[in-house]
Design a binder for these strands. Structure first.
Lengths: 162, 162
DNA sequence: GGTTGACCTCAACTTTGGTTCAGGTTAAAT
DNA sequence: ATTTAACCTGAACCAAAGTTGAGGTCAACC
């Protein structure tokens, strides 16, 4: 690991799946899984073993960060697909795609805050989301697109004295 | 539906599963599912059909609200289990159990905000969570409980020039 | 009294993000 | 040369929150 031995059988710039697992903190099975999903890629040795470019370390870091932020892997994959294929991504590339997560986080925080405020109102009145508040609405905001069954719910409860 | 016919075969204070579905905006299959999970309960007619008390409408509303707030059904069930079994829950009861969700929401908003701030730092430096930031740490905060593989990740990247 | 729509159960399938296991191969170290 | 550690594939399994379908019953209306 520390000896700069020129006789090592495979490119020193490459990582085995075990190396990548140890250094990324991600299990080997998860790395296989990411590869099946097209999030990372590997070269195969003559013996069919995976070899990863060091760059992959950063990709995996990005995947982990994205997951912490709550982004589904499919979206992470879509973002990774926008990275240049013809060169190693730069810090600027990573900055660009991270920016999208930042906006996503902002939006989710905002949404949760609105939800909390609604809930506060509903706790205040004790009604728990009937007629006076929007919480039973499954859509993001008060349904702009027609009443539907939601309105039935909202209208039905209190008039029934439930 | 509007005729106050005294000859109706079942208690007018009860709802069929279809009624409950229409008025709650929840599908029949989901109501069956909630019942299997013990979140709601029904009486059976002689023909083995479900009949719900009107109170169930509020229970379902609570379930929906909880889901909007991001609470897993198992937790919703645990909360519902704390409602009195010997009487119809009051507004005060509902207020009490909703309060817990409020605190949960606060905590999650706080956590997301911290995450966002970390991400902002990482976007700022372009490093995407290496050594300088906590984002690759899968635990809530910087790992207080030993370094582990995470540290390997964090330490490994930049020194390798990735 | 028959047709139709609503209801019943049970089993299988869906998605997401993996883990675990079985059975077999490769590679590194002694 | 052999042993051991790491690797390979594929299939099965986990949780959550349901949906879908098959096959059969119930009830309300005309």
């Amino acid at each position: 690991m520390d000896a700069p031995n020129p006789a090592v059988p495979w490119d020193r710039d490459e990582l085995t799946v075990g190396d990548l697992a140890a250094r990324s903190g991600v299990s080997v099975s998860a790395l296989h899984f990411y590869e099946r999903k097209g999030l990372i890629a590997s070269r195969r040795t003559s013996g069919n073993q995976r070899r990863y470019r060091r760059e992959t370390l950063r990709r995996v870091a990005f995947i982990r960060v994205s997951q912490r932020v709550g982004i589904p892997l499919a979206d992470v994959g879509a973002a990774l697909d926008t990275l240049p294929g013809d060169r190693t991504p730069t810090a600027k590339d990573w900055r660009r795609i991270s920016q999208a997560w930042h906006e996503d986080l902002d939006a989710r925080i905002e949404q949760l805050s609105r939800l909390r405020d609604h809930l506060t109102d509903c706790i205040g009145c004790g009604c728990l989301s009937l007629r006076r508040c929007a919480l039973t609405n499954p859509h993001d905001e008060l349904a702009e697109a027609g009443p539907g069954p939601r309105t039935l719910l909202v209208e039905g409860l209190e008039q029934d004295g439930v």
